Simulated scan of single mutants.
Amino acid sequence: MLLLLAPPVAGVALGYVLGGRLAGFRTIEVRALWLVWLAAGVQFAQLSIGGVRHFVERTLGVPMLGLIFLIVLAWLAVGLPGWPATIRAAAGVIVLGASLNGLAIALNGRMPYEPAAAAQAGLPAGVVTPKNEPADAGTRLAVLGDTIAIKPLRAVISPGDILIGGGACAFVVLTMRRRRRSGPAPETTITQEVNHDPHTEPAAPRPGDLHAGGAGDPALLGRRTDDRG
């Protein structure tokens, strides 16, 4: 759960540091949100309802973890066309990571993990869970499985997980930095005094003319005389 929450939380923190706001999510259209809830429901059933997991995986022969990835990929495919290019690129990284994980699951039935990496992370090696199974000589594309140990979190992740996490973080940051488009900026009106008489041209100043407020203004001269008096 921590590995799922860490990338978006880090994205929110980094987005604020870079001047973004959560209001940026209002600028993109989110479609088919029910697919996300469906994926969450399938994952809950996989982890908590053994009868459903046995029916789907044993009777139907469909890996539930692979089904979750397919639903998430479908949701991204629905939303991608309407998103800005930079956000589509971040979502594309997520899609690539999910595809790599999905391929490993589809080929092996569960997500394979490297027993040595599990032991390095402080996890029991050789244990089969609803989501994972240890890799062996018969595992196909074991390199795409959980092979990277993260000791502080006592977890083992896959290359696809790294792409998903990085893409999710970038997705949040880029979306937060978007600004809601407002109406066009009002035009600045410059007011100028216009001579409306086409036959009258302003007289050009001549040498010796007195200008109001200038050094030779009679009003100023008179005021100076009064001051002296």
Score class of each variant (00 low, 15 high):
77 A>M: 13
16 Y>W: 12
31 R>G: 05
32 A>Q: 14
24 G>T: 00
37 W>F: 15
76 L>W: 07
38 L>H: 11
80 L>E: 06
72 V>R: 02
56 V>K: 03
39 A>N: 09
49 I>E: 11
56 V>A: 04
52 V>S: 03
13 A>R: 05
36 V>A: 13
55 F>H: 05
25 F>N: 04
54 H>Q: 14
50 G>Q: 12
36 V>S: 04
14 L>F: 02
62 V>C: 03
29 E>F: 10
19 G>N: 12
72 V>W: 04
35 L>F: 10
67 L>G: 00
26 R>H: 11
34 W>Y: 14
24 G>C: 09
76 L>R: 01
39 A>L: 15
78 V>N: 01
75 W>S: 01
66 G>A: 05
28 I>M: 12
65 L>P: 00
32 A>V: 10
67 L>K: 05
54 H>W: 14
30 V>C: 08
27 T>G: 14
69 F>C: 09
28 I>K: 03
21 R>T: 12
19 G>T: 14
38 L>G: 10
41 G>P: 04
79 G>D: 07
60 L>M: 10
30 V>D: 03
58 R>C: 07
57 E>G: 02
70 L>C: 15
60 L>G: 08
19 G>D: 13
67 L>D: 05
63 P>M: 01
26 R>L: 12
72 V>D: 02
44 F>P: 02
80 L>V: 08
70 L>T: 03
76 L>Q: 01
20 G>R: 00
24 G>H: 02
39 A>D: 12
53 R>Y: 09
41 G>D: 07
79 G>V: 01
18 L>M: 13
42 V>L: 12
51 G>C: 02
37 W>Q: 11
60 L>T: 06
47 L>G: 07
26 R>V: 06
53 R>M: 03
76 L>P: 06
17 V>K: 11
60 L>Q: 10
44 F>S: 07
17 V>E: 03
22 L>M: 13
19 G>W: 08
48 S>P: 05
60 L>P: 01
58 R>K: 15
16 Y>E: 07
33 L>H: 12
46 Q>I: 09
76 L>I: 11
29 E>W: 10
13 A>Y: 09
68 I>D: 04
57 E>Q: 13
15 G>Y: 00
43 Q>D: 14
12 V>W: 02
56 V>L: 07
31 R>K: 15
37 W>S: 15
30 V>E: 08
52 V>M: 09
10 A>C: 13
12 V>R: 02
22 L>N: 09
81 P>R: 08
79 G>T: 10
22 L>F: 07
14 L>V: 13
71 I>K: 02
